[in-house]
Every structure is written in structure tokens, then in C-alpha cells.
Write a protein that binds this DNA or RNA. Sequence first.
DNA 1: CGCAGGTGGAAAT
DNA 2: TCCACCTGCG
Length: 876
Amino acid sequence: MGIQGLLPFLKKIHSPVNVAKFEGCTVAIDAYCWLHKGAFACADKLALGEKTDVFVHYCMKYLEYMLRKNVKPIMVFDGCRLPSKKDVEKSRREKREMYRKKAAQMLREGKRAEARECLQRCIDISPEMALEVMNTCRARGIDCIVAPYEADAQLAFLCKQGIAQAIITEDSDLLLFGCKQVIFKMDHFGNGVLIESNRLNEVLGISEGYYTFEKFRYMCIMSGCDYLPSLPGIGLGKASKVFKLARQTDLQLLLKKFPSTYLKMSLSVPQEYIDNFIKADNTFLYQLVFNPLRRELVPLNPYPPEISSDQLDYAGPYIRGDKALHIALGNINIYTMQMFANFDPDTYVPPKTKKKTSCPSHMLSMWNKLYKVRPKFVDKGTVEVTRPNLQGKEQTCTLKLQRKSPSKRQRPVDESADTRSDSELSGMYISKSPLKEESSNRCLPEDGLSALSPCRKRAKMDLDCSLTEESEIKDSGKEEDQEVLSTPKKGSPEDRRKFMASLKEADTVVSINTLASPDQVSPRDKENCLQSPKRNKFAFLMNKRPRFDINAKKELKSRYFASSSDKDSTTSQPRDERGSDLTTNSPQQIGKMERNSQVTKTKVTSPEPKVKLRSPVNKAKVSSQGQVKASPGSVFSWSKFKFSKQAENQSPNINSQFKQIVSKPKNSFQKSLSSTELDLSSSDITIVKDEFVSASQPNPRCHGNSSQNSQNASSRVPGDDLQSSCNSVRGSIDSFCMTDSQTSQDKPPSLPSLPSCVTHSDTEEDARQSSTTSASLCVSPAVPRSTLGGVTKKACRVSGLSRGQKTTKSKVSRAPDKKQCSIKDLFSKFSHTRSTPKLSHAEKTVIKDEEEGWMTPSLDNKVLSTVGGVQRKLLA
DNA sequence: CGCAGGTGGAAAT
DNA sequence: TCCACCTGCG
């Protein structure tokens, strides 16, 4: 999920990266991404309940590469469902279930390719799968952790703590959680796209002095996130415009007025939306995560004084006792909440590495008592290159500041804040960093960096690391909060005082080079600084950026004045035991969230898939007429659907669930599909051989029918009583899923004229499609057709009812005729090696050509393109 | 004209 | 699920 369109929106700051860049560092991984991709390859086996470790190997492929490059991976898995995401999850679950049922139905009808497509869409990563990966990882010495709730927040926490220096994910949400360096789209060779949060302001177009990370987060929430659908007509473009223009520091006011004030839209913003906006923001800020070093549950950022933990059940109810630890260790099945493993980090002995050199403490397992966070991360790719370039440059101010413990600058309350000019605003605010308290902890401080200019951030990052290394920070100043300056660690208190005095007096405009030592400036930063003196202007004013605050009016004072109490609270402070358990959410709050999300936008509230599915009811209706569709064009053996005795033994219950669907007689099938009583929520569907066969047609081969060639094969015998055929017919799925030559019975007897197509269509949609397309565009299951939309969308396209024609090639094929022999030959190579036919463009074109009556003698490109051109005309 | 939203296709082996 | 492409709206 994440933020729709955020990655393309941030294209400007995409930079190619190889994970090898993080050699000697720790990179935390959103395991779900890899698991899901890996599961895609074996979706059918997973659905059938067959044992497979394809997804494990898939993950290990990435991990082995990282290990080879001396990058320490930490796999982070998703945990319990967040209350605020319950409805989203529910709709996903329903969707998956729908696909599962659809897959079952497709299988009944022998549409294996389509069934497989459906199965791929109902992939759910089960805790057992995660456990399997975890076990394999641990055997390779790779750390794993299960987040109490969302992996995103946990990843961000690891980043903020300094445990990880970068994140690998596909989810743009990570940026909102405040991760500094996020790698997207990483391939097996470690190549990906790096987005650094300190460059976000380059995209937003907010002048440097006014950019804050909060603005970015608000912008994303406004454009629609997992926790809050956007208002209609508001996307990233509009949201960024709002926060580019906004000088309003009161978020409530801003949200109330933004459509008219900044967008010239007449859009009323309901109070509910504003409330939910704040909840969404809090979920990004204070979601519960697990601190593996202290082994306790903590909020991602410490709660500010005005927010108490019991108001934040939507960001994850507290998990009591050892439960949180065992969830984190992966010992608890997060679906059932039962113990299903017994990993003990204290007795865990990682495999010995080949290297004889001693492992630095930051490369140890994070569960190891001797583990320490990495002292310093040097971005070799950028920092080192820049160093020589800045040597000897202007350096009017060389003193180095020590970061101080958190305290807030005292300022008088000024109610006229909203009407101030930019220059006034730039000087009047200080940051209210929620994590400033952490400096006294072993943890790295919060990513206030994201709000800093690039060079300051880099300098600060180095500082942070060095601070961590030193671990003890003596606080001498009260004036500055941690975000004030990126200060090199060395420097006497005297120097610092002088420096601060000079700042106070002049509100000086100082070259950026004075703020960070030359070796801390990246080329990009340098360029910015040199090219844009304007940026430098604000270099000193970073700590004074205007900040948006949720409760600005009410909390103006507390916003700008640190209460002494939040100074001491640390991230690692365990949350109060509120007696809330996993199941004890705040029903009012959740209910409210749900209600709100229903009113705000139809897009999210509707659990319907974008594409209309074929109604199972329709399907069954037609089927009940006794015309079970054969697979006339089946030229592939879908060996994946081979029945596995082992699988049946392993999960008999699941099998029986599936049996309910697959083996039901047709008249009862309709009922069962529409019934909600069927419990298919389990991620497993197992196709039982006998049922599978019986649900389809009697296999003539089993009856001793002689094989006929594909041209004169007989049509299927309508299965009026599937139950009886179930009893009488026993055959392997393989025999059912024969290639053309093997199962000639599947073939219809005659050429695919339009009427014959209609005859063979077992659904109303098929019939519709056939009738709306030309005679040569009959639908045959021989070539995968979109199962997602069934026939609705693509058929429309074929029939010219939709806008484009380009997609018709791959999905529509003619019914089998004598030309199919050549196609069959073309495909036959797949039948042994692949479970699903994937057609190359050329092959698709050939099919299309033949549909159109074009004879394509070869796959010569020239011919194809010519034919393609004509084709388009024909279709148009 | 720019943006939001809808749609189809690909993903792994 | 993400991306590219297209359409329609303001």
C-alpha cells in the first residue's frame, strides 16, 4: 500500500544504489516484500497446501548477496494487525477469499491458467511461512524480528536507533516513518533506488528555511495513506501545493481551510476528517515497536506530554508481559496468538563465519548482549568524494559544538503566530523533536535530520554516530535543542558559548561551510550552497522553522516550551501497563475511524476490486445447466496442480474445505459459492485429486476411450450429476491437465465458428463476449485471459467498447481450430517446462494474427510489426 | 493544462 | 502491489 504515487513523485531524488555501498553496515529489510514476491512464484503450491520452499530460497538469494558484500541484514516481519487498519485488512481478506473461491471455480472448469492467476492474487503470507524464513535466516546467522504491529514502524525504529543504517522495502510509507535512507526496488544483485529523507525538500519545492519533515508527512497523509483516505480530488500534487504555500501553523485551522485558501476548491472538510488526520499522524509517530536491545515494547517516538498512551490504542494496543518479546522473536503465531516456536536468543549460537577476524560488536546479532550499535556510518559514496573539494574553502567559524541534552528554548507565547510573515516565522520557532530525549539513552536520536538541509543532515548523522560511540553526553547548555546545529563532536564549551553568542547577536547569515566541517559536506550540498546563496541564508535558521502542530491553538504554549518532564522520558521507557491487551482496543475510537473512513471517500471504503469479477452466481447458474466447460484449448500440463498425497495428509481439513467447493454438485455449487458459511479464510486450498477430477468431467481416458486427435475430439459429456462422476471416475489431475495431444477429449469437435464458441462458453459473460466480438475473436481458455476482470474489461476492449486496443493480443484467443496445431506446436515447448503458459510478444502476435485470419509464417519482427499495424486498424 | 482516478499488465520460475 | 497510460474534470 503506502502512499499512492509517492515514489514517482519523488523521482527527482531517486539515486541508483547498490546495497554493497552499505558494506560493514546493517540494512533492515521489510521481509514481507520479498516473501510476497517469492510466494508469487509458488502461489499454486502454497494454495494447494503443498510443501514448498521456493519463497525461502527467493529471500535467501537476496540475503546471500548481502552477506557476500559484508552487509548485515535484519529481516523484519509484520506482526499483529493495527486497529486502524482493520477495515483495510478486512477488505483485503475478503478480496483474497473471493479470488480463492474464484480459483476453485476456475479449477472446476479446467481453466488452470486463470485459476493460477487467481491463486496468485490471493497469496497471503502466513506466520508459518515467515517462521520458515526465520529459521533459515537464523541458520545463516541473519537476525530476524517480528514487529508487534507494522514492520514499517519497526524498520523505522531500527533506523532511528542506529541499529540499521538503511532500509530495503517496496513500501513508500517508510519515508513517512522517518527513515533516512530507504532502498526501493532492489534486485538480486543489490541494485535499487535510494531515497534519502534529507532530500525530500528538493521535491516539495518548499524553500529550505520552511521545510520540515512534518510538512512532508502531512502532505502524504493528506494525499491519502493507509490510515486515512484522501478527500476527493486531493492527491499528492494538491497536497504538496498546500504545504508549499501554507504558513498556517495551526494544523486544525489549516485542514479546515486548505481547499479554499490554497487550492481554490470548494470542498468542505468535515471535522471527522481532521480528527482522523490527527490519528493517522499519531499512528505514524507513536506506533508501538519492539526495542530489541532493551527487549521491551516502546512507541516509535516518545509520547509528548499532551498525548497519553491510552489515547493511542489505534496506533497499537499495548502487549503485555513476555508476549511482546515472543512475538518479536517469532515464537508466537500472530494469527492464532499461540506459541509455535521456541527461539531463545540467549542460547542461540550463530553459525561460524569463514572469516577469522573477530566480528565487530555492531555486526553481532542484535539480540546478543555484547551487541552495540554501529558507532559511525560514513557514506562512502558521497562524503569521501567531497572532502578534497572543500578543503581550504571559506571557514569563518570553526568552533565545534557539542550536542546538548534536550531542552527547549523559552519563548513568550504569541497568539499572533498565524499572521506572521515568513521572515518572522523563520526566526520564532524551535523544533519540537519528539525524540530529543533519546540522546541520554543508548539510542541514536530521532531523525530530526529529515528536517535539516542536506549538508547539515550529513554532518549531524556523523555527529549522531559519534555520539553513540561516546555514549556519554555531558550536557552543559540549555539554549539549544538537538536540531540546532550539526556540530562536530569536538570543541570546548568556551567555543560553544562564543558561537552561540555570535548567533544570538547577529542572527547571522553564515556560509554553510561554517556550519559543517568540509569533510561533512556532500557534493550535492556543496553545489546547493554555492549555487544558491538563499539556502545559506537559512542555514542558521533551521532550528527556527515554523512547525505545524496538531493542537496549535490549544497547545501553543506546550508546543514551544519544553516541559521538564519530557526531558527525561526516553523512547525505551516502557509504556504504562494499561491493562490493555491485544484484543482490547478502544471500540469507540476504532468505530469512529471506521465510520469516518466510510464517509470520506468511496475509493477506500469500498472493498470491491477495481475490476468486476465474474459473479460466481452467474457462473454456477450457467454451470447448473449441465454444460461444464471443457478445456478445449488446453495445451499445457499444469503439473503444479498435480495432486499431492503428501499434501492431503498434511492438511486434511483444508482439503475438506476445498472439497466443499470443488466437489460440490453443480446445483449446490452456486449456493456454496455465495454462502458465507464456507470458511476459506485459511491461506491454504488443497485440491484433492478425486474431487478435482470428479468436479470436472469424466475422463474418457479412464474409461478406456481411445484417444482421438485434437481435430475430431468429442465434446465433453455434460456432467449432470457430478457426484456420481465423482464416485465413478478416478483419475489423476495430470490426466485431466493433459496437453492437447494427450487429452484430445478436451477438444471441441469442430472449428470455432461463433456459434460454437457461444456453445462452449459456460458463462453469460463468455457468451456476451463472444457476441460482441468478431467471429474470429472467440474466447478460449487455451490462452490465459484476464481472470481478474473475467471478461468484463478486456472483452470490452476487444469489442471496441473501451478506449484501447493494445491489450487484446495477449488475452483473447480464438477457439481451437485447425490452425491451433501451429500454436500448439509453438506452445508445446512450455508444456513440459512451465506450469503456466507465458507467451512472448511474438507468440501473442501470432495467436492474434491467426485469430484475425492472418497467416504468420515466421516470427520475423518485420512481419509482426506490419501485421500488428493492420491489426490495430482492424480492431479500431 | 494539470491533476486525480481508473485500468491493464507484470511480478517469479 | 506498482507502474504507465489514458480519460475526464475543474
